[in-house]
Amino acid sequence: MTGTATTTFEQVLGLGDDALIAAQRLCEWCTRAPEMEEEVALANIALDQLGAARLLLTYAGELEGAGRDEDDLAYLRDDREFRNVLLVELPNGDFAVTMAKLLFLSAYQRLRYEQLAAGEDARLAGIAAKTVKESTYHLEHATLWTLRLGDGTEESHRRMQQAVDEIWPYTYELFDDNALRQPWLNIVEPVLAEATLTRPEDPPWAPRGGRQGLHTEHLSYLLAEMQVLHRAHPGAQW
């Protein structure tokens, strides 16, 4: 257990849950991707997120000190105990929605992991040193697609704008516990502009609550599917 005074169980859990739920949503694209090369790409990103989730959840369990491992945390908590941001639990929608979610998430994750890689917590710094590179790749991938969908055909532009508008309000929650919103805007706004997309106005109200365990209705369906088999065989090894 290496934590510092400022690294809490809840904090690490939040990062781990972000990655876990993001991975779960990406897994749903398996055999449904718009092209075979994209199957491989999305699976890569899902594997990265899942790998990060496993490292973070394991660390969180150690910090908690109650003997919970990565699987206990992933499979035996109810939605009120999950600490992910709402953004990651939203349904995949169409490919534009998925890319909008990935653009916003990966830009945030890269900044957050950069922060942690330079932080005092040695364990987190070690994890973050790897995940920064992965987030950089995810951001590249999402950017590539945002440009092509935004500045592609009329239909793709319409869908991508709609996706951005829909997901935008969920990005505010990302910065409740850090000062990264402006650096994040510095990454995201130019991408939207180059993609000929309109950056949405700040909404009068932004959805929040994930970090406190108050989620959307989507999460419990997601968890039901994710956890059903594990829970059906208590104590079993796989």
Partner: peptide
């Protein structure tokens, strides 16, 4: 999506990705 452990989930995802 229903793999019963995170390790199994990762391995299965990697396998299916290989098939693609």
């Amino acid at each position: 999506t229903r793999a019963p452990s995170l390790k199994r989930k990762a391995i299965l995802l990697a396998k299916v990705q290989d098939e693609a």
